[in-house]
Structure formats: C-alpha cells, structure tokens
C-alpha cells in the first residue's frame, strides 16, 4: 500500500468524503439525437455516455429469438479515459463488463413484448475513476426509459469496498486498486430485486452484511437522482399534454 493512507485519522477518504458518502452524481437525458434513447452521467470524475437503439430487427437475423427480444450491450473505454492510453480494442475486462451490464438490465425490461427484435445499448466511458460499471448500469436504465422501452423498474447501482479494514460506499479508482475487497451491486429499488452482485476480494459474513446494507442505501440515493432527472426532463412535455 502507498505511503498515503486511504482513510485519514478523522475518518475522511482521500477526496474528503465520509465513509458512507457518495460522490456528486449528475445525470442528463436525451443527449444524442441519432439514438432512440440516451443518457450521460458524471459520477464524481467518472464520465459515461450511453446510447440505446431499438427495439429493432436483429442483425444478423439468426440472433433473434422467437419469444422475446434480445438485449445487446457494449461497454467500451475511450483510449483517453485513463491515465495511460488504453488500446481501443475490446479487452477481456470490457467483454466481461458488457455481459454483466446486459444481465443487470435485462430483468428490468419487458423483453417478451417485442419478440424477434433486439435492443442495443452502447456505453462509452469518456473518463474513468472507479465504479464505471455501476455508473453505466444506472445511466443505461435512464437511456432505456428515454427510448420509451417498457420496464419493470429503473436499475440503480453502486459499489462498496473494504478499504483499510473499513467498509466504504461508492468506490473511487484508488480505493478500488488499493482496497482489499470491492462489491458492485445493482438493484431494482421499488421491487427489491438484485440484478447484479459481484465481489472481488474477501469479506467476512458480518462485513458482507454491513456492506450489503450500505450498498442498498447507496442505491436508493442513486434511484432518487435518477427519478429527479427523469421527472425534470419529461416535465415540459407533460405540462403540454395536460393543456390539450
């Protein structure tokens, strides 16, 4: 571990947050004109752009499934998103995250309503500072809502970690790299359903329970932000329709 401590004596983290404090999050909807739905998120220093297309006919056609629509996700990090240039070719990690993001979002979508079609989600990480998969999932569910795709609930996601024997909420890049365990989790808040849970490292049962409760609390905060963003974005149109 580095010379600098990740958590100071008075319980503050390197960016001055308390242990259970999340970074400032700002969502923006409808940022891409060509996409059917889109969202942009600034999650601390993490910046991600998500575009959603569909439901549309699947290409190549053999991918289509007769009884439901398939969801395809592509997570990609821009070469300039990290300090050392990242090769733009999809890495092992990006392929895994694409799969994880797809599986976190699929339970929320009414896939059976659009048989033989596909929904494509494209996420581009413009700047990475930890929790990119959580930010992508949260932003992608807003982009899906923007596209008018029927969903059971929004998906909210956040990561927790064990850093210097303490459980912290909303993991930053350095905490992820030098911490001893981290656990991203995604839930459908109003249904109380977990759609993603991963863990890297070791936690005791007690630590896990504490981390899980903290993550749930964090997800609710993200969910609130997501709803606020949706409401303010759609407010203009709503006011209009009431005045028909």
């Amino acid at each position: 571990m580095g010379i600098r401590k990740l958590i100071s004596e008075d319980g503050l983290r390197i960016d001055g947050r308390r242990l259970d404090e999340i970074r400032p999050i700002r969502f923006k909807i409808g940022v891409l004109k060509n996409a059917d739905g889109s969202a942009y998120v600034e999650w601390g220093k993490t910046k991600i752009l998500v575009g959603v297309y569909g439901p549309r006919e699947a290409h190549p056609k053999h991918l289509a499934v007769p009884d439901r629509c398939i969801v395809q996700a592509r997570y990609h990090m821009a070469p300039f998103s990290v300090e050392e240039r990242k090769s733009p070719a999809p890495s092992r990690r990006e392929i895994e995250l694409s799969k994880v993001i797809r599986e976190a979002l699929e339970p929320a979508i009414f896939v059976e309503m659009f048989p033989r079609t596909t929904i494509d989600i494209f996420a581009e990480v413009l700047q990475a500072d930890g929790s990119t998969r959580c930010a992508t999932i949260s932003a992608a569910s807003l982009a899906l809502a923007d596209a008018g795709i029927p969903m059971r609930d929004l998906v909210s996601s956040i990561a927790v970690a064990k850093v210097e024997d303490q459980i912290v909420l909303d993991v930053k890049d350095e905490e992820d790299k030098h911490g001893s365990a981290d656990m991203p989790i995604a839930i459908m808040p109003s249904k109380n359903v977990i759609t993603l849970i991963q863990m890297d490292g070791m936690l005791t049962y007690e630590e896990f329970k504490k981390a899980f409760e903290l993550a749930k609390k964090g997800c609710m905060e993200v969910y609130k932000k997501q709803r606020e963003t949706l409401e303010s974005y759609f407010k203009e149109i709503k006011v209009g329709l009431e005045n028909v």
Binding site: F110, G148, P150, M151, R152, D153, S190, F234
Partner: peptide, 16 residues
Amino acid sequence: NVYREDNKFYSTIVGL
C-alpha cells in the same frame, strides 16, 4: 403500459 403485481400497479414507461 401498466402492469400489476398483487394489488399494486406500476407504470412501465414515463407517461401520463
């Protein structure tokens, strides 16, 4: 655009 679970109703999209 509405689905029910037990006696609770949820909207599936953003709308009126």
